[in-house]
Nucleic acid binder design. Structure first.
Lengths: 337, 337
DNA sequence: TCGGTGGTTTGAAGCGCTTCAACGACCGTG
DNA sequence: CACGGTCGTTGAAGCGCTTCAAACCACCGA
């Protein structure tokens, strides 16, 4: 920077002003400095800048699994919102590994980013509190298990489950199945919503719980094989899958076998609006959690924290998921993309 | 850090040594310092560290489109390799936007990361040279259009196309189609390989070129619709799709229609080994480009640059893609997962 | 007793920037 | 003509760390 100053015949402070408060510098001087910067190919040292000013223009986003398009949507939303305020978002993929999640949170803390977003494995409580303790602005996305002192953005999974089941019931389905694993809070909440919808039907609708060991495509295929092995009277006419990949595998096994038609015999609803859902042979009706919107809102909360949020600011945002009806429940005709 | 020093009754330099050269510090002293660090919840300031030492422990990876699992694989591989040397990888998603790509490259340069990985939109030449000019270590992945002065990791697309076509020919297919857009260098190279394989067959095999406007699922469905509209004698018995999503859409439209069976009537080969390929109703035979391996090798090149690479070091790595045979060509029996 | 030795610890000099009090030149005003 | 105000500009004081020459301190063998 000193070189630039010399080349332009001004002092260090002036160069700094050109960079940070161009308004304060006289037209001619500014132009001279800019030319010098250009010619010397000067790029200011961000480390020095943030050390000196104590601020940074980047947010860190630790994502537990970027291969899930839901999380990537969040990242995209965060990026959008951040760039509106001249901020950047750097991503760290924890790849389903708790240690990595930890490592990256530490890294962002060391680097003194302006704030941290975290879309964690379930139950990130331990780490998040230690960050907050050091006063690093933090927003947690999609983790229902954190305490009220943490700023969060979530979706209402119970409501989503309710919507899914009601959709099937309104289509005339009476024997429902909920398929999914036991060990994910969000899946349990979705089930809760389904159960409520069934209860509200006043006995007209039955619900069976099918357990899977995870939410992968294979788990879904296994559910499909199970259904195909049943006598006709035990086959449900509507299924809510705990996640899209599950629904995808299920539908695939039915489509290949061809004895049970989707949606004529069995209507299927997924959850997440994963890319997988729209790329399926039979596009899957699903609950959109508006990942981008979550990312945007989370970033807004982060910005609010930076501005020394007014005391009354709400720390927690809950978004309502909405149903996207596709072929897997309503058939080809009335598809809404 | 001064607080830590005082709390432990030592000098600043000693605390720094505990952090960076623990071997140099006497057992007892070290323990005292560590306790103090623990108690005060001290986290060293990365900005100051990298300003002072002139080094950083993080790499920046600018990815043109993280929603493509191929690129995510690269990121995963880079991460693996980097962590073996105690480095971290921060991701920036350009989201198919050239400006963002530019912005993030600038950001990483400002932040003085230890090195930059770039998996660009085609033809990133302009930017990469400006980075190299400033001496920032850089490795470009998967862009055939950069010059020889840039360190790169690539795959041999011509060879991949050749493998794909040979696979079909060996299965007895004689009327081939190559489907894909014109405007992607990598796709053109794949076509080149296919053409060579056809030429090598000495006239026994015919090749038709079908143009698509992109490499999305819809483009593939359109190809499928086109085939279905043809009289039987004009239907190919083998198709090489320029990318997996294309193959996916194609297969879907055939599966739903059911007049053409895959692979009995038409065998389909994709390219990329995208997640979409293995999650397809009929798992897709595809060419794996070993994204993780690319990420690992790229990181190795970066590390080599940091170590002041010995003069003779190869600057460019080309990996051979390999074929993964799945149902879409070999049917259910002989699937290799 | 004394210089030598090697393992530890110290403290001051930066790293490249931002910030801010202070300075100077110039203007309009009383 | 002196004076207070403005607008631009300057330069020095840090920001929190690493680095490294120098100091220190037993302890050893001569």
């Amino acid at each position: 920077m000193l070189d630039v100053a010399r080349a332009a015949g001004v002092s260090l402070g002036t160069v700094s002003n050109v960079l940070n408060n161009p308004g304060k510098v006289a037209e001619g001087t500014r132009r001279r400095v800019e030319t010098a910067i250009e010619q010397l190919g000067f790029v200011r040292n961000g480390a020095a800048r943030s050390l000196s000013s104590g601020t940074s223009s980047t947010f860190g986003f630790v994502v537990i699994d970027l291969s899930n398009s839901f999380f990537l949507d969040m990242a995209r939303g965060a990026e959008q919102e951040a760039s509106r305020s001249g901020m950047n978002v750097l991503l760290a993929n924890a790849d389903l590994d708790d240690d990595k999640q930890h490592t990256y949170l530490d890294l962002f803390e060391e680097e003194r980013v302006a704030g941290v977003l975290l879309a964690p494995q379930q139950n990130a409580l331990g780490e998040t509190t230690s960050l907050r303790a050091r006063g690093m602005p933090l927003v947690v996305l999609n983790d229902p298990s954190v305490g009220p002192e943490v700023w969060t953005v979530q979706t209402d999974n119970v409501h989503g489950g309710h919507l899914a089941a009601r959709h099937l019931i309104e289509l005339g389905r009476r024997r429902l199945v909920f398929a999914g694993p036991d060990d994910l809070t969000v899946v349990r909440q979705r089930l809760e919503g389904v159960e409520r919808a069934v209860r509200e039907s006043g006995g007209a609708v039955t619900l069976e719980r099918m357990h899977t060991s995870g939410v992968r495509v294979e788990d879904g295929r296994r559910v499909g094989a199970d259904l195909l092995a049943r006598p006709a009277r035990d086959v449900p006419d509507g299924i809510v899958a705990g996640a899209d990949l599950l629904a995808l595998g299920l539908i695939q096994s039915l489509v290949v076998d061809r004895r049970l038609r989707v949606p004529e015999d069995v209507a299927v609803v997924g959850y997440d609006n994963n890319r997988a859902a729209w790329n399926s042979v039979i596009p899957i009706t699903t609950l959109d959690q508006a990942g981008e919107e979550m990312g945007r809102r989370a970033t807004q909360l982060l910005l609010a924290q930076l501005d020394g949020s007014p005391a009354g600011t709400e720390r927690s945002v809950t978004l309502e998921p909405f149903l996207i009806a596709r072929e897997s429940t309503v058939g080809r005709a009335s598809e809404t993309p």
